[in-house]
């Protein structure tokens, strides 16, 4: 019984500490925590509009989170999803005039393909630098995030500035590239269906194909995989490229489904939130579908919280950080328990 209580305390320590911290910050700003949390819930779950907002915010998180999953499963720390999201959206906007000439049923897939290639190449660079030059991808992917953000900033101030040349954002993408709305007047768009389909595809790839198995083997033990004849370098390359492609698609879906224009700060940190979604979802497509729904609700609710209770949305990052820490902590606890059981077993034998 005491074991059970301690186990429960261990599970709850980070979430409770996080909740206390957030309540404290809201009080410090002279706002009402009750009003804040009420807005958080009504803004994410209260009614069709709120639910649609939750779904469209979950959409890029799910797509990019699946990308993060594939990289992490292969033992490649792709923290560059934020940059890959930007590059994906940028590629679509850059080619929008050409893509817009295609008939609508072709324009959308072509747009997604362009974004996937751009994101994939952007993510393959750090994979190449890691396997050939020994550059840690934790650092290189972050550096490329900053480069991508400046690249987009330059484009929307320069070559891709809207036609009147007054404002630092791109022209609206042609109608053929816009994703149809599923339930007007809510903003729910077709991208949500794409994201769910991608989750199913990633599940099949990871758990039902040889390439997926090889990729997981490389992540679990690179040396064993090498001895088993798996070309680890190629696995890392393809994992990072697929990972970046999914993040690029996430950027394209956000562009084609929601914003329709590209601007600086186009992504409010979706790439980083996607990492939280992937880890919270246990690096499993089903788990990530649920966790991105939860984090999407958090984002939608946080916007309502800022509007109605004046609590800044940046607080969401605190919640995400605490989630990641508690997941890391829990995983280590579970490992310690299995280890203890194994050792006890070994002693008895």
């Amino acid at each position: 019984m005491r074991e059970r209580t301690r186990e429960l305390a261990g599970t709850l320590v980070f979430p409770l500490a996080g909740l206390a911290l957030i309540t404290g910050i809201i009080l410090l700003g002279g706002k009402s925590p009750v009003q804040g949390f009420a807005a958080l819930i009504s803004g994410s779950l209260g009614g069709a509009f709120a639910l649609a907002e939750t779904a469209i915010r979950a959409c890029p998180l799910l797509l990019a989170g699946l990308g993060v999953t594939i990289a992490f499963r292969a033992g490649a720390w792709n923290i560059g999803t934020e940059g890959q999201i930007y590059v994906g959206a940028l590629a679509v906007v850059a080619l929008a005039p050409a893509l817009g000439m295609l008939p609508a049923p072709l324009a959308v897939p072509a747009g997604l393909l362009v974004a996937a290639v751009a994101g994939g190449v952007w993510a393959w660079v750090p994979a190449f630098l890691r396997t050939r030059r020994g550059v840690q991808e934790v650092i290189s992917t972050i550096m490329l995030n900053f480069v991508a953000i400046q690249l987009v900033s330059w484009c929307v101030h320069g070559p891709l500035k809207e036609s009147t040349g007054q404002f630092p954002y791109s022209n609206e993408i042609p109608a053929a590239l816009m994703l149809p709305r599923l339930l007007p007047p809510t903003r729910l768009h077709l991208g949500v269906v794409f994201a769910l389909a991608a989750a199913a595809a990633v599940w099949v790839f990871l758990f039902r194909t040889v390439r997926g198995f090889q990729l997981r083997a490389v992540g679990a033990s690179p040396e064993a995989a090498l001895h088993a004849g798996i070309r680890t370098e190629r696995s890392v390359w393809s994992a990072m490229a697929i990972s970046g492609a999914l993040a690029g698609i996430a950027g394209a879906v956000q562009l084609m489904g929601v914003s329709h224009i590209l601007f600086e700060k186009f992504s409010p940190g979706y790439g980083y939130t996607a990492i939280a979604a992937a880890l919270l979802g246990g690096l499993h497509p089903v788990g990530i579908t649920l966790s991105s729904g939860l984090l999407g609700a958090l984002e939608a609710g946080a916007s309502a919280m800022q509007r109605e209770a004046g609590v800044s949305t940046v607080i969401v990052y605190l919640v995400q950080g605490v989630i990641i820490l508690s997941v890391a902590h829990q995983a280590a606890r579970r490992r310690a328990v299995t280890e203890a059981i194994r050792q006890r077993g070994a002693q008895e034998v």
């Binding site: 957030i22 969401v316 605190l318 995400q320 950080g321 605490v322 990641i324 820490l325 997941v327």
Partner: peptide, 18 residues
């Protein structure tokens, strides 16, 4: 690495909100 990422993200939120 995972815990490090957690602290990085939490700090953006903590310092920004405070």
């Amino acid at each position: 690495i995972v815990a490090g990422m957690g602290i990085n993200i939490a700090m953006i939120g903590l310092t920004g909100a405070l």
